[in-house]
């Protein structure tokens, strides 16, 4: 039974899924899987780990469907789940020591966070050199800057929503994104050729 149209809002689809309409989930998944996967993958720089975390996020969506309330945009809720899952992954892997929110503090060595994918079979088989360069450059960012940049890039959320999701103010989000862009441009020579 499907009473939702293709142009239904995400929140409508999620509520329909919670009410038992599996096809609503199919549409929701198709809309958001790409952006969410890129967000997770570019955090992990390891496809196998990214697949696992990506799947965990959606399993969480499925599990809590009954208690879903459209108090905020679905996208904001979805990326909040993803962000939290990634933070949990960092904690569990011991790769991150929690630091104060003023993340310009460089005490966390970026290279310790996400190992570049140079030695990963996925990277060697990667269809795109650009992709490998990009992932390496992202891996070199401090995690909070990378997170702010990827949320801005992939989630479709406003800076205010990203700030709410990550627990910081809008100006901090802007600062993190700007800093990330500066470092990425420095790490990606020839970037201007893609403009």
């Amino acid at each position: 039974m499907s009473e939702t149209a293709d142009d239904d809002a995400d929140e409508t689809l999620m509520l329909a899924y919670a009410a038992g309409d599996a096809s609503a989930f199919d549409r929701l998944y198709a809309r958001h899987k790409g952006a969410l996967y890129r967000y997770v993958l570019r955090h992990c720089a390891n496809a196998a780990v990214a697949d696992e975390l990506f799947q965990d996020v959606w399993m969480n969506v499925i599990r809590v469907r009954a208690s879903y309330l459209p108090a905020a945009r679905f996208g904001s809720w979805l990326f909040t789940l993803a962000h939290n899952r990634i933070v949990d992954h960092w904690r569990a892997s011991g790769q991150v020591k929690m630091v104060p929110l003023d993340d310009d503090d460089e005490t966390v060595a970026p290279s310790a966070l996400v190992s570049p994918s140079r030695d990963e079979p996925d990277a060697r088989a990667s269809a795109s050199e650009t992709s490998a360069r990009l992932r390496a450059a992202l891996a070199g960012l401090p995690p909070l800057q990378r997170d702010a940049f990827l949320l801005h890039q992939e989630s479709g959320l406003s800076l205010a929503e990203i700030g709410h999701l990550t627990g910081v103010g809008v100006e901090t989000v802007k600062s993190r994104v700007r800093y990330a862009v500066t470092r990425l441009r420095a790490a990606l020579p020839g970037l201007g050729e893609h403009a």
Binding site: R185, L191, G192, A195
Partner: peptide
């Protein structure tokens, strides 16, 4: 924020 970087990110294939 950066059109060139944005373009690079958008053209990245197979990240699905």
């Amino acid at each position: 924020i950066d059109p060139a970087l944005d373009a690079m990110l958008r053209e990245n294939p197979a990240e699905t």
